[in-house]
């Protein structure tokens, strides 16, 4: 059993009467990349702020490295690196100065790693922060984070301003840290990124965690898309349980099947002489879209 890096139990946060978080249970292990996804305003950033000890939980507990996120914030932050979604820097400091500042506030500096990251991210550290674009400000925060010798990385939509090349560099950095056994908590809107990097995913919606598990676990709960071409026309498909959204294609039919019903459907199809059968697992986007649309919750 891997050691827990981060854990929340029944975590709730209220701002006045507004409930921002409602009983969130999260866990991130060592050497694990956890993807945290959800629509805007769902409570992703609030969760992160509670984990950082910047906001105090109303109920429940938030622990990082087994320590209390609010009370032991400083002790925790010595081993934690953070990249905010909206990087605000001091206009009259240079990128290099900001990187040194953040790294040294956490602990020792590593000149080699800093130089390597600056080169990888193609960032000029002598420019004043006021002249950086959004992408470059994000690079400053990323270099500062990855230059730290941290055990847990909390990244809040860290790549929204990066170009595809830099996105690639970022993914390499994350995987490198993962292989070193570090925990990564990644909040993101870029689902292909989450799909590629994350071992486990949590989907938050209106302050509640609606799904959590490995990607294959999540997929198991959902429908598979099938496209089938047969010798004789298919009949009676709509009478089977667990089949949805039947559509006629040029060379056959396409439809969705609940994972549990796949066996029944395949044996039903066999009697019509299958010429071709394609099945695609749901993409993360499919999973995600279901939760965007409130009418479909719990399907």
């Amino acid at each position: 059993m891997a050691t827990l890096n981060l854990e929340t139990v029944e975590l709730s946060k209220k701002f006045g009467k507004v409930t921002a978080l409602n009983g969130i249970d999260l866990a991130v292990n060592e050497g694990e990349v956890f993807g945290y996804i959800g629509p805007n305003g769902a409570g992703k950033t609030t969760t992160i702020r509670v984990l950082l000890g910047i906001l105090q939980a109303t109920k429940g507990s938030a622990k990082v490295f087994g320590l209390d996120a609010w009370k032991d914030a400083v002790e925790i932050h010595k081993r934690l690196a953070y990249v905010p979604g909206d990087v605000n820097l001091w206009p009259n400091l240079t990128g290099g100065e900001v990187i040194d500042l953040f790294v040294s506030l956490r602990g020792k500096q590593n000149k080699e790693r800093r130089a390597k990251l600056l080169e990888q991210f193609d960032l000029d550290p002598t420019k004043k922060c006021r002249t950086y674009s959004k992408g470059n400000r994000q690079k400053v925060a990323l270099v500062a984070a990855f230059a730290c010798d941290a055990d847990l990385f909390i990244l809040d939509e860290p790549t929204s301003g990066l170009d595809p090349l830099m996105e690639q560099v970022f993914q390499e950095c994350v995987l490198e840290q993962k292989n070193l056994g570090k925990g990564i908590f990644l909040s993101s809107h870029i689902l292909s990124e989450v799909e590629r990097l994350c071992d486990r995913v949590g989907i938050i919606r209106e302050g509640k965690l609606v799904e959590t598990g490995t990607l294959s676990e999540l997929r198991h709960l959902t429908r598979i898309t099938m496209t089938v071409a047969t010798q004789s026309p298919i009949t009676g498909l709509e009478t089977l349980t667990g089949v949805h959204g039947i559509r006629t294609q040029p060379d056959g039919l396409s439809f969705q099947v609940d994972s549990a019903q796949v066996g029944d459907v395949v044996s039903h199809l066999a009697q019509f002489g299958v010429k071709k059968l394609e099945s695609t697992p749901p993409t993360l986007e499919d999973l995600f879209m279901r939760h965007y649309d409130s009418a479909n919750v719990g399907v």
Binding site: L52, H77, N88
Partner: peptide, 11 residues
């Protein structure tokens, strides 16, 4: 929004 990053850095 600048204190956030400072406090996230063990200050």
């Amino acid at each position: 929004g600048r204190t956030e990053q400072v406090y996230a850095a063990a200050v």
